[in-house]
């Protein structure tokens, strides 16, 4: 189980960040991208490079809320045989080497629905998954997966967006735990850039509705942006920029650059030092 006397792995991690007085770095990679083994090597280097929380994308054929970079990552992973079962296997394998870094699975509902909600949750708990972000399950569909997941002690992390108005915020902030993921731009992942002042105001607004930490993502690409947003939020999420490094390391014939995991780790280190300066 991921709940202990000190709270969950995720709660402990955010408490630790608070006591250190710094923002956290959440890194997103797609499970199995570019292929299952290379992806596992990448996964294993993230925490050492400075990721405080790992967000692991569950590949899906039709990722409607994601931009071209993350859709391409899903397609590479799927083309190389990645499945939901293998994603859970990788989390289980990872837990054999790192008991402390929280892992949040992020993705779309259909593969989980197809797998079976109860069977998926059993498997996720047993593998050591800490939380879920399911993009196409808004508050209106909480009965599907949110309630069963929370009943098992898996964090249900919601997306709040610039369009989530004050009328809607209380509902969005209910039945949620771990942290709140603020989508800093109107749009899909990896397209527009987040504006620090706008984000600061949004975080203040969210904080008036919740005591949970606020992580900000969807428009943060550079260590400088990570530092800026980190100064006004509890954590920053970087996804497409990392995924782009993977994309550039695969040539047209599918050959993968030898030191891909090292290159990703190098970039995560830069992001981590950006966040630590914030």
């Amino acid at each position: 189980m991921n709940f202990s006397d000190q709270g969950s792995r995720l709660d402990r991690r955010f408490a630790e960040l608070r006591s250190k007085g710094r923002a956290g770095l959440v890194t997103f990679v797609t499970a199995g991208d570019p292929d299952p083994e290379t992806a596992f090597d990448i996964l294993c280097q993230l925490a050492d490079a400075g990721a405080d929380v790992i967000e692991l994308g569950m590949p899906f054929s039709d990722p409607m809320a994601d931009g071209p970079a993350i859709q391409a990552a899903s397609q590479r992973a799927l083309a190389n045989g990645m499945t939901l079962v293998k994603t859970l296997d990788q989390v289980r394998r990872y837990r054999g080497r790192d008991e402390d870094t929280p892992i949040i699975l992020m993705g779309y509902y259909n593969p989980i629905y197809h797998f079976g909600v109860e069977a998926f949750l059993d498997s996720a708990v047993e593998a050591g998954v800490d939380g879920l972000i399911i993009v196409d399950l808004p508050v209106e569909e909480d009965a599907e997966l949110c309630h069963p997941a929370m009943a098992r002690g898996i964090h249900w992390i919601r997306l709040a967006t610039p369009t989530t108005d004050d009328e809607r915020l209380p509902a969005v902030m209910s039945n949620t735990s771990g942290f709140v993921y603020y989508v800093s731009i109107m749009g899909i992942t990896g397209t527009r850039s987040a504006d620090k002042e706008v984000v600061r105001q949004a975080v203040v607004r969210l904080k008036s509705h919740t005591d949970l930490p606020i992580a900000v993502g969807f428009g943060i690409r550079t260590p400088q942006q990570a530092r800026e947003i980190g100064s006004v939020a509890d954590a920053v999420v970087v996804g497409s920029a990392i995924v782009n490094i993977i994309a550039k390391s695969v040539d047209d014939n599918g050959n993968i650059n030898d030191n891909l995991a090292g290159k990703v780790a190098e970039f995560v280190k830069e992001l981590a030092s950006g966040v630590r300066e914030s």
């Binding site: 509902y109 196409d136 808004p138 508050v139 967006t161 369009t163």
Partner: peptide, 20 residues
């Protein structure tokens, strides 16, 4: 009221679209 025909239908969209 919630847009369901039996178990089918519903509103499975990202939060950004939900208010709209």
């Amino acid at each position: 009221e919630t847009g369901h025909f039996g178990i089918f239908g519903g509103r499975f969209v990202a939060e950004t679209l939900m208010p709209l």
